[in-house]
Design a protein around this nucleic acid. Sequence first.
RNA 1: GCGGAGUUGGUGAAGUGGUUAACACACUGGUUUGUGGCACCAGCAUUCAAGGGUUCGAUUCCCUUACUCCGCCCCA
Length: 449
Amino acid sequence: MITKPKGTKDIYGTEAKRWQYVSKVIDEVMEKYNYNFIRVPVFESSELFHRGVGETTDIVTKETYDFTDRGGRNMTLRPEGTAGVARSFIENKMYGDNNQPIKFYYNCPMYRYERPQAGRYRELTQFGYELIGSDDPLADAEVISLAVNIYKILGLKEIKVNINTLGDAISRNNYREALINHFKPYIHKLCSDCKERLEKNPLRILDCKVDADKEIMKTAPKTIDYLNDESKERFEKVKEYLEVMGIEYVVDPSVVRGLDYYNHTVFEVEAKIEGFGAQNVIGAGGRYNGMIEQLGGPSTPAIGFAVGFDRLMLALEYEKVKIPVNSSVDLFLLYVNDDEKKYAAYLTNELRMNGFVVETDYLSRSLKAGFKQADRLNSKFTIVLNSEMLENNEVKIKNNKTKEEEIVSIDALIYYLDENIIEDEECECEDDHQHECSCSHDCKCHKED
RNA sequence: GCGGAGUUGGUGAAGUGGUUAACACACUGGUUUGUGGCACCAGCAUUCAAGGGUUCGAUUCCCUUACUCCGCCCCA
């Protein structure tokens, strides 16, 4: 048997419906915030990610899917979204557009060669957005608030937003130096991971779980002390705007983000759900003012955010957030003999072209099995075609909810369906339901009212 | 890249070094029911992730590989 590659996932059935729903909500919210959809290539020149994401990040050094194409070009499947968008911004000379800043969003698969675990795949989907061309703290606040609002709109409650600032490039560098100087004399006391981090990514030492309680950690220099006045002031402004918008956040100096390109504001969103896996950061972002210049474009400030879509879905599931998944057909057509089957083919096509969701039996099943199938599909109406009645231009149509049957003229069938199809009232209520349901169904939650 | 636990049919699963791999659900057909939803009858894994080894004999023991899950690193 051929199996799916390690770390990939088939999404179908109810799960696919949930994905489509969440994607749709995202599209709607992004439209309100005036972000435009952008689609960039799945593979790009390897150089883009090396220069854009950073030579020192693990994502680029050992987690990319690299290949040489038949023309001998070095290609990489994108491990994240920002670099591609930045490249597109430069290549299409969007800095010349008279409509600044440029706001984009994407919702696409990314590829990272990692060991899979809960909420982590080799093919992962990220939804993200970028605001390019503004260095105003208001832009930072918008990007953060948008993140919070999307989770809120989707119904996710147990999240925590951590924000921090790395300051400008100079502040960041000074801080990095200070950290190295602080930890270097004590290197022998650090765990083996931290020893490596000291060289590669000293900011990450602060995040270490093993060394967290050690004295050197507590005395480590703080970002805030290495910020120049401008950077400090900037961060204060961001916080002010967030407060005005009523966005809750926590300032957490250990939020440093691994990607090389970040500066100033960085933030992440954590799922705080009981029992959620180790991969609990469901979204992260920050400002990357230097990246576009580094990729050969004009110096352009930018900020963005990315959501791990798979993890987001996992969080929604853990929090038992209700997602409407309506999957019912309007009409199921059954038949017994070949003439009726032929007529079913005709009628199915005709009604579909008139906008109805129509199904019929493709397996020449018994009537009994046909009814069962109609039931399974949650069909609102069922018709058993009958040759004799067809000669009189009539069908008997059964309303599967009321169990009542009526004889209807075929010419009037469309009108009949239009009049009698009541839009989906399927109740999603479960036992733990708290009377928040707006459905008109007479289900448990209303009976108690 | 490192560590741990798994992998039996469409699904949930029981099980054993020895000729027909339990049970349930689902599914298919039939009887009956005014055309399904109930009941009853029948069918439904030559096969236990793949390959190799030990053995007279392995789904059961050993090894390898693949995949899944849970952690670490890293990260969304």
